[in-house]
């Protein structure tokens, strides 16, 4: 049996999870929630993580009922993400790895999402849509790489949603995306927005500027409600994502789609993707907020795969990096 503990803190969530041969033993998490209208900044986010990380670590061990001696390997997020929060978490991971005399494994955050999604859903070789606050990529596996077929050319889809939420002061608790999703259910009219698919890529910054510009005018004049805007934004963004996912599937002759990342727990996105899959006779795989949203177990799971094939990170190579593309990693654990 191989037991891996995973440390994640690349954005506003700090999570520590323990995985034993595909079984999640514990996965506690805390979220840094900012007031409506405000985003999270690196310094403050790092301070939040620093304040709770040792408590979360204690919880992870206690919930799993394990002692440090039971752990075989310490995995942590090497990148990509915000520098200060990444470093806070890496410092604790490096320190406990040495205290406990365990090897360290630096994990690519995106790979963590993919491996967690594969573990939880059992999807074998899916086309992956990775959608979160910091990333938007359509990915397919080939010859030891998760290859990026399409991606955003500016901001991530979750960033577009988060920043729209700030414009009309939607609460960030539990997350702006969740609140937009709930409001969108009450939307009654579709407001036309720019639709910006560029080949295999997507662009969201123009849509954000457009809606930032018109939101208050339309709301003040009573032409539409905030719910209508939430609905229209979701429909537009998600249609674009479904379009590029479908094109990647056609290229790869893939019959499986896996949605991962924080935006992936949006049920409307899953529904729209489900319709497309049904038309193609393909299967859709998605997970709920426990595993879609950043968490420690996903880093533990990717670390478990890496450790099992003998990959470890020397302490001197354990620096964190804000930029770390999904396709930089050689996937040594898959055929």
């Amino acid at each position: 049996m191989t037991v891996v503990i995973g440390f994640e803190g690349s954005a506003n969530k700090i999570g520590i999870g323990i995985v034993r041969d595909g079984e999640v033993l514990s996965n506690p998490r805390r979220t840094y929630i900012t007031p409506p209208g405000q985003g999270f900044l690196p310094r403050e986010t790092a301070k939040h993580h620093r304040g709770v990380i040792l408590t979360v670590l204690r919880e992870a061990l206690d919930e799993a009922g394990l002692k440090p001696a039971d752990i075989d390997c310490v995995a942590y997020t090497k990148g990509p993400g915000m520098g200060a929060p990444l470093l806070t978490v890496a410092l604790v991971a490096r320190t406990v790895a040495q205290l406990w005399g365990k090897p360290l494994v630096g994990v690519n955050h995106c790979i963590g999402h993919i491996e967690m999604g594969r573990l939880i859903t059992g999807a074998n070789n899916p086309t992956v849509l990775y959608v979160s606050g910091g990333n938007t990529q359509v990915i397919a596996y080939s010859e030891r790489r998760y290859r990026i077929f399409g991606e955003t050319i500016d901001i991530a889809v979750g960033n577009c949603l988060d920043r729209f939420a700030r414009v009309i002061k939607i609460s960030n608790d539990p997350s702006p995306g969740y609140n937009i999703e709930q409001m969108a259910k009450k939307g009654k009219q579709y407001i036309e927005l720019p639709y910006t698919v560029k080949g295999m890529d997507v662009s969201f910054s123009g849509i954000l500027s457009y809606i930032e510009d018109m939101a208050h005018k339309m709301l003040n004049s009573g032409q539409c409600t905030a719910e209508d805007l939430c609905f229209s934004l979701q429909e537009t963004l998600f249609s674009m994502l479904v379009e590029i996912t479908e094109r990647a599937m056609a290229h790869c002759e893939s019959q499986e789609v896996l949605i991962v990342g924080g935006v992936g727990c949006n049920l409307r996105l899953q529904e729209m993707m489900g319709v497309m899959c049904e038309e193609r006779g393909a299967r859709l795989f998605a997970t709920d907020e426990r595993f879609c949203i950043d968490n420690g177990a996903m880093i533990a799971q990717a670390g478990w795969e890496m450790f099992r094939v003998g990959q470890v990170t020397q302490l001197s190579d354990s620096w964190i990096t804000q930029r770390y593309r999904t396709d930089e990693v050689e996937v040594t654990w898959r055929d």
Binding site: L54, L57, R58, K67, L87, L91, V92, G101
Partner: peptide, 20 residues
């Protein structure tokens, strides 16, 4: 100094079991 303090706190909180 922030990072050093975090490392020292981590040692205080989780250092003992490894010495068993």
């Amino acid at each position: 100094l922030d990072h050093l303090a975090l490392v020292m706190e981590t040692m205080d909180a989780f250092g003992q079991p490894a010495l068993q």
